[in-house]
Amino acid sequence: MAAKPGLGKTASLRILERMLVIRRFEESLVEMSGEKLFKSHYHLYIGQEATAAAVVESLRPDDKLTTTHRNHGHVLARGAEPGRAYAEILGRATGLNGGRGGTLHMSDPDRGFLATSSVVGGCIGLALGGAYAQQRRGKGGVSVAFFGDGSLEEGISFESMNIAALWKLPAVFICENNGAGATGSSKGGFPSSLISAPRLAGIAESLAISSKQVDGRDVDAVHAAVSAGVARCRSGKGPVFVECITERWEGSKPMWPELSTGITDVSMAWDAGQVPVKFREWHTHQDPILLFVRKLLRKKLVTREAIVKVDREVRARDATARRFAVSSPMPHGKTALQRVFA
């Protein structure tokens, strides 16, 4: 499969829908956290939706994936049932993992995900194993690791990229560099990455891994780079590394997530009057959903009405999923002793 020149209408709408599914899910999640429906700390993907939604567009059902503590977007983009994902985060018995994983370890093995590690470099090593298995199988499958810039601070990332390159394993390293504009631990926010390399893609390049750096908010840019990379991987030429750069979303800057930029209104894409003054920069230049909608309208691939319709359907499904989770039972305490071994 060679890199396609660009995304058509159907694929674009599919990707937009995925992005909206993720956005509505996480907007609801912040509310549910506020309602104390779950008490754990959690990590949002808002602002990075373009990356997951575009990456999965290049994947086959038999491809493998790994993700991190910031996994909601990846799991949902791959088609996980939002109701079961909510249930997992709420610790319900109906969750994707029966409530044993929670937000930090949510995984959908039925859609190719390996275990979700919250040790930031863990997913890179596991994805290496997925790539090893794919190479042994010999059917052109790939293994994708979604990880943040901070994962590259752990030595396993270097070790894994080295082995992937040495053995020409079909590993697709998707580095979501969401560090731009991050507050950092020293100022009371999330840790921001502390890496000496001026370009993260340069770390992979030093191991002779084919690398690209793209704007992680730009669906077309991510898709072009990843589809070419995946095609390269499938043809047996070894691993690829794509650094997708995004700005740190305002709501993820404090230690506890906040919906600081409000509930997304797709009409902000065409009606500047809807954009609140306070976060004009975000809504105008950062929000990948609004950026993509503006582009689709500019290219006349879709109409405003079609976008509003997709969003309305996504929101309706989200409400149903939310109700499913909230009305789901909790697991019995004693089942904690089960399923230690297969």
Binding site: K64, T66, L114, A115, G122, I124, G125, L126, A127, L128, G129, G130, Y132, A133, Q134, R136, R137, S143, G155, I156, E159, S160, N162, I163
Partner: peptide
């Protein structure tokens, strides 16, 4: 760290 993770990840993938 990496080749033991490789072994674990491959095992999760059916090997």
């Amino acid at each position: 760290a990496a080749f033991s993770a490789l072994a674990a990840g491959a095992a999760m993938s059916g090997e």
